[in-house]
Design a protein around this nucleic acid. Sequence first.
DNA 1: CAGTATCCGATGCGATACTG
DNA 2: CAGTATCGCATCGGATACTG
Lengths: 239, 239
Amino acid sequence: MEKVKYTSYGQYCPLAMATEFLCNRWTLLVLREFLFGSTSFNDISRGVPRMSRSLLSKRLKELVVLGIIEKKSNFKGSQVNYTLTEAGQALEPVIITMAGWGQEWLQTSPSLDSLDTRFLMWDIMRNTKPLAILPNPFIVQFNLTGTQDGHNNYWFVFEVDKVDLCNKDNNYTIDVEITVDAQKLTKVWMGWDDFDKAVKQKEMVIIGDYKYTSVAKQWLGQSIVAGIEKRPKEKRVNY
Amino acid sequence: MEKVKYTSYGQYCPLAMATEFLCNRWTLLVLREFLFGSTSFNDISRGVPRMSRSLLSKRLKELVVLGIIEKKSNFKGSQVNYTLTEAGQALEPVIITMAGWGQEWLQTSPSLDSLDTRFLMWDIMRNTKPLAILPNPFIVQFNLTGTQDGHNNYWFVFEVDKVDLCNKDNNYTIDVEITVDAQKLTKVWMGWDDFDKAVKQKEMVIIGDYKYTSVAKQWLGQSIVAGIEKRPKEKRVNY
DNA sequence: CAGTATCCGATGCGATACTG
DNA sequence: CAGTATCGCATCGGATACTG
């Protein structure tokens, strides 16, 4: 495998060199997927649903050549696993710092206009907390309203130590049903709006056994940057 | 001024939103220039000599619209100043973190093959330390060898509290003369090679009054990431 | 000093279709 | 599941020339 040619900035500055391959379209988002634990092509792809699979394939190859990720196949080659190298793991602070800056300083509105619910639900799912008190399995059905991409129903299947996301009704026995506007769910998940307030005002309706609905905030979880407070509107970047 | 349209990733994720405008070609390097104190169009341009001035002009406009920098002109409009907004200043950790990662994990060699000495000297100059013991003015002449861009001579003019860079001989009375290979100077400046060792082995020859040459390491200074040690070669990213 | 206007070529990337 | 191959457009950005 050959090295990829990058249009050179002509600078020995480590920032200049790093941006040459890190600041391509999608690259940092692909690396974000690794930080959330994805290792297979399809899982990574689910985290960047609008990225074409051919481009993802190309990016993964580039990252392997650079030495930021490693590719491992089993003897049949049917199971492939990508993992971060040491250098790749060391990118975590870079990504977290940039994400934190965005959470603190960015206007929220524009992104909500073109919501991709596949990404939203995937993002929430992989950060859920399977509490010990939950039955096995524990099925949660989402009814999203106000969607633009036509996907309104998703299911979380909590099992011991793992959670699956599904977009088809497999005749589940539903334990909890959550009905909410997709944009509202995003805001609550990101910490931009208050969870309890959304429930109280019936913007988010959670139906099921009180044992489970009362701790929904805990098993649902929140974005890892939800704790960072946004700056006042007039100081934000109006992207 | 209208908002710029960015090709949307369709993700509310703050990292995704931030990368849409931060991870364009040159953008982070322009912001780096602000962190080093540049405020005028020409000074910024000197820090990114291979960036076309028309593109720099476009980028600055985008950053103004975003609210990351501010533009201020005097009443004639002849003096223009760009400064970081609060949101822009908050990007410092983002840039420092990425630069630090590059210093720690990147292979050094490729960047040295296409060295731009204009950038090198500008970079060194703006991080020099005008020591109190230096006379006023204090003139340093650089004789660069092994250059590829045809620029071999530069002068630093130390005055009280400021240093100027010059690429023409204005009949200066030279206090100190430094003769060194451009790649070697880069390595020493970046902390990849040892200053004292380079002097001892006559790879860097510093001629002048011992009062000044003996503390050359101090007034020359080093890159702000020079203190970060590189990882062993086999673990580095081979960009 | 501080830009703008125009041109044009490279390439990045999305869409689509196909494979083992 | 894990990709590859091909096509073609759009836009990004470099080069050059010009302005107040």
